[in-house]
Design a protein around this nucleic acid. Structure first.
Length: 491
RNA sequence: GGUUCCUUGGCCGAGUGGCUAGGCACCGGUCUGCAAAACCGUCUACGGCGGUUCGAAUCCGCCAGGAACCUCCA
């Protein structure tokens, strides 16, 4: 490859060339959702970001194993030790078996991801299905002396670990600062140190999610599942670990500490973190209650939404920002994405209508390489999209007869759009793709517009405008061309 | 308070020393029965104040404003 992929590694805060440990294989682990609520716009960002990475790595020839976990136990409601398990709380509130809660929201998550054209990962392990692995890891950490048991629970000994290693290296913190700034919390008497975190928690009598262990009937700490499952499916050392920036501390910091404490070495070679989606400049999140669920976006059912936004509009909106930048939600920005996406899809659709010429006055020789360069530069999708828009202008110019293209030009455009827009960025035409009835439907519209053509020939503007206006009101965009008409359905 | 980071034209967003993306909106033109779309053109910005440099949105300092993390959150 001329311009190999570089990705930004949070661990040393710079872009580095991506060289997998065992080429042509590449392994990636991404922190998935805690399934206790409907997926919201914030969940779409990492899902799409790492979907792009998954698709791109596959495209350039790697055999990728993509693991994204499902957190269905251990993620506590308040602080790491005293809060109620998120799943268990939801189950109590809704009077359901915890696994019913998990299944219900997992189904909804998957439906939303499918709508966004996010490919399913290679493996989606559940934390609750890997209790044995997690218990084994706790034992290893205990055996190595970096954890201690206290009243049936097991805690990671951060201070001891920090004597030999650096707890806080990923987030750029040091233990002294944390000791000074960590609030006094209730119920910390079990821990030697306020910065220690739970590896295993003894379940209180009313706690329903519990498993037997050498220390107590209880459940694993939140950070443990990712360490245990990434190791199981990707090995002691693997290439990429991703997630939202808000997980850097403490979650990923703890993962590093657990893995090093258990196995003596760091497991992750490249840490990648997507930035947040903001709303009025503030992080969109569950705790702030300022989130909009994906279903609400798709249906336009939320007080902040002026209209519905299709899944592809959401996807395109997210791809128009680099994944490490914050992205601010607004109706105006979403509407701009919707319009831009429509323009790009229409041009893609029209490539095969470009008249073939012997001479080329188009400039598309560098297009493909420019797109690769953009993707290779830490997945810079907005730049890749900007190159596609340059191509859109050329496609439209060729259709308008202002520039000429050869067969080679046209087929190159087809290839580039198919590769980057469809295969890598995962954009599809929601109206047409996978719609078996589309052809019949399209012919019916053609028939109506044929009748309008006849009315126009008769200078019957009343009938002509009536057909056009009513179709427009239904969401169609009607265009008269010099020898006919064109239409599309705006979603 | 600590750590990390951000501030680009009406809006969204790229861009890490010179060649000053892209989208949306707006305005003017071409085309059209009228439109729409398209094309062409216009608008050319980098929070403030200093500094480094032949040259800075881009490097350094100070100031102002904002955010994330430090407790669950993608």
């Amino acid at each position: 490859m001329e311009h190999p992929l570089h990705i930004y590694n949070t661990a040393d805060r710079k872009k580095e060339q991506f060289i997998p440990l065992h080429s042509p294989f590449a392994g990636m682990y991404v922190c998935g959702p805690t399934v206790y609520g409907d997926p919201h716009l914030g969940h779409a960002r990492p899902a799409i970001t790492f979907d792009i990475l998954f698709r791109y790595l596959s495209h350039v020839g790697y055999k990728v194993r993509y693991v994204r976990n499902i957190t269905d136990v251990g993620h506590l409601e308040n602080d790491a030790d005293q809060g109620e398990d998120k799943i268990a709380k939801k189950a109590r509130l809704e009077q359901l078996e915890p696994m019913e809660v998990v299944q219900y929201y997992l189904n909804r998550y998957r439906t939303a991801m499918e709508a966004l054209n996010v490919l399913p990962p290679s493996i989606e392990p559940h934390a609750s299905g890997h209790i044995i692995e997690q218990i084994r890891m706790v034992k290893e950490i205990l055996d190595n002396g970096y954890a201690y048991e206290s009243k049936g629970s097991v805690y990671f000994d951060v201070e001891k670990y920090n004597q030999k290693y650096h707890y806080g290296k990923l987030s750029g913190r040091n233990i002294e600062d944390m000791l000074n700034t960590t609030r006094e919390l209730d119920g910390q008497e079990e821990k030697r140190n306020s910065v220690d975190f739970a590896l295993w928690k003894k379940a209180s009598p009313e706690h329903i999610m519990r498993w037997p262990s050498p220390w107590s009937d209880g459940f694993p700490g939140w950070h443990l599942e990712c360490s245990a499952m990434s190791k199981k499916y990707l090995g002691d050392v693997f290439d990429i670990h991703g997630g939202g920036m808000d997980l850097i501390f403490p979650h990923h910091e703890c993962e590093i500490a657990q893995s090093v404490a258990a196995g003596g070495k760091e497991t992750v070679r490249y840490w990648m973190h997507n930035n947040m989606i903001t709303i009025n400049g503030q992080k969109m999140g569950k705790s702030l209650g300022n989130f909009i669920t994906l279903e609400e976006l798709f249906l336009g059912k939320h007080a902040l939404l002026e209209q519905a936004y299709s899944p592809m509009t959401i996807r395109f909106f997210i791809l128009q920002a680099q994944y490490r930048s914050t992205l601010d939600f607004s109706n105006e920005a979403l509407q701009a994405a919707e319009k831009g996406l429509g323009r790009i899809l229409e041009a893609f659709d029209n490539i095969n209508k470009i008249p073939v010429s012997q001479q080329s006055s188009a400039d598309i020789k560098t297009l493909k390489q420019q797109c690769y360069d953009a993707m290779n530069d830490d997945l810079n999708t907005p730049i890749a999209i900007s190159h596609l828009f340059e191509a859109v202008r050329q496609i439209n110019s060729a259709l308008a007869g202002q520039i000429t293209m050869t067969t080679e030009d046209i087929s190159e455009l087809q290839t580039v759009f198919q590769t980057f827009l469809v295969d890598i960025m995962g954009i599809k035409n929601e109206v047409k793709d996978g719609n078996a009835a589309y052809e019949s439907f399209a012919k019916a519209v053609d028939m109506l517009l044929g009748m309008r053509m006849q009315a126009k020939l008769n200078k019957d503007w009343a009938t002509s405008d009536k057909i056009r206006n009513e179709l427009t009101a239904l969401g169609f965009e009607i265009k008269d061309t010099k020898d006919g008409f064109e239409w599309k359905l705006n979603k």
